[in-house]
Nucleic acid binder design. Structure first.
Lengths: 146, 146
DNA sequence: CTAGTTGCAAAATATTTGCGATATG
DNA sequence: CATATCGCAAATATTTTGCAACTAG
């Protein structure tokens, strides 16, 4: 069966005739290790910590490539810039605390079914979805929020 | 009762002790007229067409202000930059065609209920949500898509 | 009047690209 | 080896900010 999302990513690269470079492997490792939600700058910083050879343009170029190949997903968690995560097997969604910025991932089969249905109603063949529920988490509601 | 979303926006400004300037009125008109989904640059272009006095920084400053006041919503429809729309009474979600970029708004009470439930399960008090379903619309599926 | 707001131009950020050097397959 | 990819630096693009002038209330 399929290995890790990181392995899958390398396979996709091979299949597409792209080269497996140290930089690409590193970027995938970084994304894997931190399990998502990093922006380009942060990915660059972490990658460079392990291999100073890497440049910021390479990070951007590869994030775009990996995004186009569909092995990573671009998120818009906050109002700032983009965040990226390795696309895992299971699609998942995000609960975001507007106070502490905590991001909680969740999955829901009911949600999946509902989406399917809504797509059908409108003649859409849904490929992927972005669902972000923004609000206050338990802690921030309890403590003196804001 | 409440007037248009544009009127409501002006009320919020008044209530918050902010001034109703020609520029703000114009920005709201532009957003109203085009019914959402414009980015900052496009809003600037359309506003300037009607009143050359307005500057790009004013557009940015006011989009941020209006966003903070909650009268407009910032969207992330594509992988590019942000888009804005006047916040209407009813929350709605988006179906986005990845081929022709068409954006279809939809509402769903089932979705609202499900979101409520999911939030509760995770201790979140949901304030607002972003739901984007990306796929192929009927036309693009029918025609030779891609 | 007077503080919030604007325009302008400059600064800060973010992202992309040209090109010669490098290294994968 | 041929060519995809990289690093670097320069070019773009996007968004923010300082400040003096302006104006809504």
């Amino acid at each position: 069966m399929a290995g890790s999302a990181e392995e899958d990513a390398l396979d996709v690269l091979r299949t597409q005739g792209r080269r497996i470079t140290a930089q690409r492997g590193l970027l995938l490792q970084v994304m894997r290790a931190s399990h998502g939600h990093l922006d380009a700058g942060e990915i660059y910083r972490r990658a460079r910590a392990r291999d100073p050879r890497i440049s910021l343009s390479t990070v951007y170029r590869n994030l775009n490539l990996l995004k186009d190949l569909g092995v990573i997903t671009e998120l818009h968690l906050d109002e700032e810039h983009h965040h990226y995560e390795l696309r895992e097997e299971a699609e998942h969604y995000h609960l975001i605390c507007s106070n502490c910025d905590r991001v909680v991932e969740f999955d829901s089969s009911s949600m999946g079914a509902l989406i399917e249905q809504i797509g059908a109603e409108h003649g859409f063949l849904i490929d992927h979805v972005h669902i972000d529920l923004v609000g206050l988490c338990q802690e921030c509601r309890a403590g003196s929020d804001m």
